[in-house]
């Protein structure tokens, strides 16, 4: 038999999974040990064990690990995983390499929700001005936007054509951006707190933030894995999927819902962090091929590694801390351009 021509760099998803897990552990160690104060591997381990087992510890140093660096790392990893997962689902479902939480307007909705709550906090009752309310606002904004986009795109027979979905998403995003600009104008001198939230950052994230994302990420991952075969079949076209016994309407709705909830939870705790959801599935697809049974979990894992690494660089490597959303946009933007060019060229060559 001739050597099969396979345009895949690594044929074994388990090998890549192992590599990503090792990268994740290495990254965790780097993130926890590096910083203004350095920690050794043993000390980190003792603090984590001590906290879990309720031992007496030196308060200051153990607080830095347990209440600052570890929750921040956990939030970044969970948000990265949620963004990678939702990107993989959106791209497979809509068969559009540009589909991600941004194209569907989910992120803009979240941003407007958060900015709205922050602005209200300037004049409204005091309880509105606390770290939790922007998160709740973001979540509400994302959910309402997704429902509106789906309602706009829905055909009479209840189907959701990919092109209508993306067009509706772009239209909604434009309207929401205008709303956001209006809020910034209203906020006047206090506009910086909105802008800082929008830039995307994991500064001062708590265990609660990590938990919020995880609560939405895990069920989304399970639903996506259970639908991965059907998602593969649906890429052949909805009619073909139906003749193969796939409930295309139900599967599409279910996947859109879980991907959007996962993305919304990530935006809610981290602000706007672009490109992770867009670029991670592309990279993984390039490495192991388009099978969603491997693509979905590995995109989540790689999203966690990428965003965790970006946050570590933003916090500990660069001379002054910069918002991680700026960093991911600066680094991943050009990578995305390269991928986009390659695909465009392949399409024009036919």
């Amino acid at each position: 038999m001739p050597v099969p021509h396979v345009a895949r760099l690594a044929r074994n998803p388990w090998g890549l999974a192992l590599l990503l897990v090792v990268a994740l552990l290495g990254l965790a160690w780097l993130s926890l040990s590096w910083g203004y104060l350095a920690f050794s591997y043993q000390e980190i381990w003792e603090i984590i064990q001590g906290r879990l087992l309720g031992r007496e510890l030196e308060l200051g140093r153990s607080q830095i690990i347990w209440e600052v660096r570890l929750p921040r790392l956990a939030t970044a990893l969970a948000a990265g995983a949620a963004l990678g997962l939702s990107g993989a689902i959106y791209q497979g479902l809509l068969l559009n390499p540009l589909a991600d939480p941004y194209t569907l307007g989910v992120s803009s909705g979240a941003a407007l929700g958060a900015a709205g709550v922050i602005t209200l906090g300037f004049w409204g009752p005091a309880w509105l001005s606390n770290p939790i309310t922007p998160t709740v606002g973001a979540f509400g904004g994302a959910a309402v936007t997704l429902l509106a986009v789906m309602a706009l795109a829905r055909e009479r027979d209840g189907s959701l054509p990919p092109t209508s979905l993306i067009l509706s998403g772009v239209i909604m995003s434009t309207i929401l951006s205008a709303g956001l600009s209006f809020l910034k104008y209203l906020a006047g001198d206090q506009v910086s707190s909105i802008i800082f939230w929008l830039l995307g950052s994991f500064v001062a994230r708590t265990w609660l933030d990590a938990l919020l994302v995880t609560v939405f990420f895990l069920p989304a991952l399970l639903v996506a894995l259970a639908s991965a075969v059907d998602l593969n079949v649906m890429t052949l076209g909805l009619d073909q999927a139906r003749t193969l016994g796939v409930n295309t309407k139900g599967t599409r709705r279910r996947l859109l819902a879980v991907a959007s909830l996962a993305a919304a939870s990530a935006v809610a705790v981290s602000g706007i962090i672009g490109f992770v959801g867009l670029i991670t599935p592309h990279l993984i697809r390039l490495l192991i091929g388009p099978d969603h049974r491997a693509l979905i979990p590995l995109s989540a894992l790689a999203g966690a590694v990428l965003l965790g690494a970006a946050d570590w660089v933003a916090r500990a490597v660069l001379p002054g801390e910069i918002p991680v959303g700026v960093l991911t946009a600066l680094l991943a933007g050009p990578v995305f351009l390269v991928i986009f060019r390659r695909q465009a060229r392949r399409l024009t060559r036919g």
Binding site: A7, L95, V229, P290, D291
Partner: peptide
């Protein structure tokens, strides 16, 4: 077997043919 199919993702021929087994497969395929 439809007349026209559009393939958007680079599944291998063997993978596409294996999708014909979807009605017989368990959840994890």
């Amino acid at each position: 077997a439809p007349q026209k199919s559009t393939f958007s993702l680079p599944f291998t021929v063997a993978e596409v043919v294996a999708m014909g087994r979807r009605p017989y497969l368990g959840r994890w395929g």
